[in-house]
Design a protein around this nucleic acid. Structure first.
Lengths: 201, 201
DNA sequence: ATACTAGTTGACCGACCGGTCTATTGCAAG
DNA sequence: CTTGCAATAGACCGGTCGGTCAACTAGTAT
């Protein structure tokens, strides 16, 4: 217990950035072991398979995300609709700083993985979908608050939140294709104007 | 000349659906050859490398797309803003029918490839970006028409077109993660309300 | 001192990867 | 009938893939 055993953490740390900057298929176990300065036996002591690793990475990354810029952006102290602007800023700076570091826009890890493997592994797909759902819930809560405060007129907050998330992911996708973070600033302003009206039957 | 030599076409046809439904990395040369009933020698007679194949596939697919539902959706006979509704319908039915066929939503080939490999191959990235640019131009032309006809108030058609494309790709991404085409119908209505105002200096 | 076990090593596995190469086929032009 | 060449066949290549395994190490509990 008192022993400092950080091997598992080291594996995850090393692989997080690699999955994010490249792709699931492109990062091999051997490379991971080399970068973490371990042998394969150690790797498979902690993870039954590469698939289990990516499952763990999604969890860890979602946690980083929630504790990091998401917690900042969705700061309850900010007026609700300003939080949405903050999300744009956060997305921009993240992609921008990644590009400054290694020349490429990595995009969103969850979006990347979703498009790469969600047709091939349903468990993975469901896990990524859960991450998106919790992101959507953040938006929805913010919209509900804005409606309560009278900042915006009532709307279908659930669906609008989903639409905002879609738009965010789409912006990041185009920014990656263009390899230019400015796309996010260019398209960002439209995010908080997205509205889907309540469907009155 | 009179000889029916459809090997190249057969390779492309076989690989198009596979790249679309799985991923670039997941589809191997051997599999492609088997499915096209040829040997590796034939494959490498037509394509110098797997990378050159995917380059060709992008071209072919963009052509299919342009001649297929894009040509229909952006039918000049339709009122401009109705064309945008048509895009949603087309996206929905395509994803829906794919799911009915094999149980999975394939998403958008270009979006899939962009997120999978655009950090790893700049030529490929640029090619995909060009496809997105021409899609954006379609939207822009439609918006310009709508402005001319007075259907919508003047706006920044270039940036709004890009925003619409982002939203479309984002919807498809979420639909794939959820493996449910209904996402597209749920979020679709917001597409044509996206607006980015002209930036008056 | 002993037994147990989590952690680690690194050789090894079969399968498959993208790609090469030589030999052969078959058609078309001279 | 010969020459030439696009097209095809299929064995072969080194390397890497994800994953296994028996042996060993070191710290802990008894």
């Amino acid at each position: 217990m008192s022993n400092i055993n950080d091997t598992r953490e080291r594996i995850i740390r090393v692989v997080k950035t690699r999955f994010h900057n490249r792709s699931y298929a492109d990062v091999g176990i051997k490379e991971i072991c080399d970068m973490a300065s371990i042998q394969k036996g150690s790797f498979y002591h902690f993870f039954p398979s590469k698939r289990d690793l990516v499952l763990a990475v999604i969890d860890e990354f979602a946690l980083d995300w929630a504790n990091g810029f998401v917690a900042e952006a969705f700061d309850p102290a900010l007026p609700p609709m300003e939080r949405i602007d903050y999300v744009i800023d956060a997305a921009y700076f993240w992609q921008k700083s990644s590009k400054d570091l290694n020349g490429h826009i990595p995009g969103c890890l969850f979006g990347n993985l979703a498009l790469e493997i969600s047709t091939q592994d349903d468990v993975l797909r469901a896990k990524l979908n859960a991450v998106f759902t919790s992101a959507k819930d953040r938006f929805r809560g913010t919209l509900d608050e804005a409606v309560e405060q009278g900042t915006i007129k009532p709307l279908d907050s659930e669906t609008t939140a989903e639409a905002m998330l879609a738009y965010l992911e789409g912006m990041i996708l185009l920014a990656k294709a263009e390899n230019d973070p400015e796309v996010i600033y260019r398209l960002g302003p439209a995010l908080k104007n997205i509205r889907i009206e309540t469907n009155r039957h």
